[in-house]
Computed example of a mutant assay.
Amino acid sequence: MLDATDKAARPAHGPSDHPAISATKVGVLLANLGTPDHYSYWPMRRYLNEFLSDTRVIDYPKWKWQPLLQGIILTKRPFSSGANYKSIWNEELNESPLMTITKQQTAAIAAKMQARYGDQVMVDFCMRYGNPSTKSKVEAMVKAGCRKILFFPLYPHYAGATSATANDQFFRALMDEAWQPTARVVDPYFEQPSYIEALAQSVERGYAALAEKPDILVVSYHGMPKRYLMQGDPYHCQCQKTTRLLRERLGWGEDRITTTFQSVFGPEEWLKPYTVEHVAELAKQGKKKIAVIAPAFSADCIETLEEINEEIRESFEHAGGEQFTYIPCLNDDPAHIDALSEVIGQNLAGWVS
């Protein structure tokens, strides 16, 4: 986590009134999607307003979208979304699972960086929507002496509505800095061998724990409007490649694994097949035992813990499915932390020794 305890000092050859300057460090700023501060109405409304007002997420013209959002959606949706969050909320820490897991990931990666680089590198996290904000963490890192910042969106695959909007917010934060740090942004890591290995190990562990092995593994990715693909977004292709690399690492035939997309929103066509419909079709085809994994998420969240493990499970079982197994996200699994740390190390090349 961010360590801003380093004491700033006046430069040795500076005049007596020269402002104190912190010792130079390199910051690694992890970024995830975000989370409401609570599942009650107003925190949910603030969070949804920020999220659904992002033109990277909903790219309809503001004159058309905002009246609908402010007048109808934000009046009703905080109640339903709040109920979904309440069903998975970490009541002990009073935070969402995404927040809990991101903190765990950050602490584990910080320990890795400390062991490798000592005090040269500090690690912290921010959220694109909600708290802690990207701006607040950039400000804190600069104040603590980070003259270089590596920004790492925790999305294996690139998408305009995930990686790009996180980067946008990071660059906006830099615009407000009088003395901007040098910045780098981590590329998508969907084909990083250590990431594929971590995914494969999680599948192998999940299958080993079952008395009866699934008929098929459903690899469910967060969806997006098909129009985005046609406009040049590479997300769909990167997801398909992840499934292929995972299948090859597991040594499976194509009949044992399938790619789907979840979280459809609005009236237009999204990437297909839709997970919630496809699992029901699998059950009707006689595949009564399935496992589901969600490689597009670096941490379990509302889309996995509630949507997959409740809504999608229900769709499968209602259609006659008998055994539904959700394989958790990689979260703070040691193999995942090693993979993320490897990616960070590659991107810090030339900055630290």
Score class of each variant (00 low, 15 high):
D6G: 15
V218S: 03
G34Y: 09
T165S: 15
D59N: 14
R116P: 14
R249W: 04
K213P: 06
N347L: 04
E204A: 08
P19H: 12
Y235M: 02
L305P: 15
Q66V: 06
F152A: 10
L250A: 04
L2K: 14
E50C: 06
D124N: 02
H222S: 00
Y221S: 02
D176I: 00
W65C: 03
I290L: 03
A319Q: 07
R172L: 10
D124H: 01
W270K: 10
D255R: 11
V276W: 00
D17E: 15
M175L: 09
G345C: 03
M224H: 04
D6Y: 12
M175N: 13
H336N: 06
A335L: 15
M230N: 13
N32D: 02
Y129W: 08
P36F: 09
G232M: 02
Y60I: 00
C239N: 06
A4W: 07
P295V: 03
F151D: 08
E248S: 05
F261V: 00
D300R: 10
K289T: 07
Y41P: 11
I216T: 04
V186R: 07
H222A: 02
A208S: 15
A319D: 07
H38K: 13
M113P: 12
A173V: 05
Q180D: 05
S53A: 12
V57W: 10
A8I: 06
A200C: 01
R247Q: 15
G206P: 06
W252I: 04
F171W: 12
S96C: 08
K62R: 15
K64Y: 11
N331I: 04
I73G: 00
V203C: 07
A291E: 02
G118S: 15
S81F: 01
Y41L: 04
Y117C: 14
M44D: 11
I73A: 00
P234W: 03
Q285H: 11
I344P: 03
I344M: 04
L33F: 08
T325W: 13
P11Q: 10
H13D: 09
P273M: 05
W65D: 03
I337K: 06
T258F: 01
P295F: 08
E317N: 12
T182V: 01
R247S: 10
S133F: 07
Q323H: 14
E139H: 14
K135C: 06
Q192H: 11
S263C: 03
H13S: 11
C126Q: 13
W179H: 14
L210S: 07
L93C: 10
A208Y: 07
R205D: 11
E268L: 08
M230T: 11
L93I: 02
F316E: 12
D215G: 01
G14E: 12
E306R: 07
G223C: 01
